[in-house]
């Protein structure tokens, strides 16, 4: 059972995480936590059970966004929106292999993020 109004933000850049918080709160949703590493992200996801996770690819520690997302997928089932600054084919292939709900390329505008979150909420009304 996931909380539709909760969003988990995973980014090792504090300022970026804060701006994402602003966008999410503008939508009337709640930021249930911010995490800077894969371990933190998984722990918060398991604890808070958010419907959506905004996942930056680069994180503190050895594991990246895909690693965190795989574990969250197994243990929680949240929809993961990947955020990446890289257009490297290797990175994109890695992301694609992890059933992403969406991929956003930095720099992200409020409009882009809102569109993606709205779509995910509409696609799955009874989460």
């Amino acid at each position: 059972m996931l909380h539709r109004d909760r969003v988990l933000i995973v980014d090792d850049e504090f300022i970026i995480a804060q701006t994402l918080c602003v966008y999410v709160e503008d939508l009337g949703l709640t930021v249930c936590g911010t995490a800077a590493s894969a371990d933190e992200a998984v722990a918060l996801a398991v604890d808070q059970r958010p419907f959506i996770v905004l996942m930056d690819m680069r994180l503190q520690g050895d594991r990246d966004g895909v690693d965190a997302s795989q574990e969250i997928h197994e243990r929680v089932g949240s929809k993961v929106v990947f955020i990446t600054g890289s257009r490297e084919p290797a990175t994109l292939a890695r992301i694609e292999g992890d059933h992403p709900s969406a991929v956003l390329f930095k720099p992200i505008s409020e409009g882009q993020l809102v569109a993606v979150i709205r779509r995910l909420l509409e696609e799955d009304p009874g989460a």
Binding site: E13, I15, I16, Q18, T19, V22, P107
Partner: peptide, 13 residues
């Protein structure tokens, strides 16, 4: 590019 995003974030905040 990342740092410019941070600058943008600071302006937003």
């Amino acid at each position: 590019k990342n740092n410019l995003q941070v600058v943008d974030g600071l302006l937003l905040l």
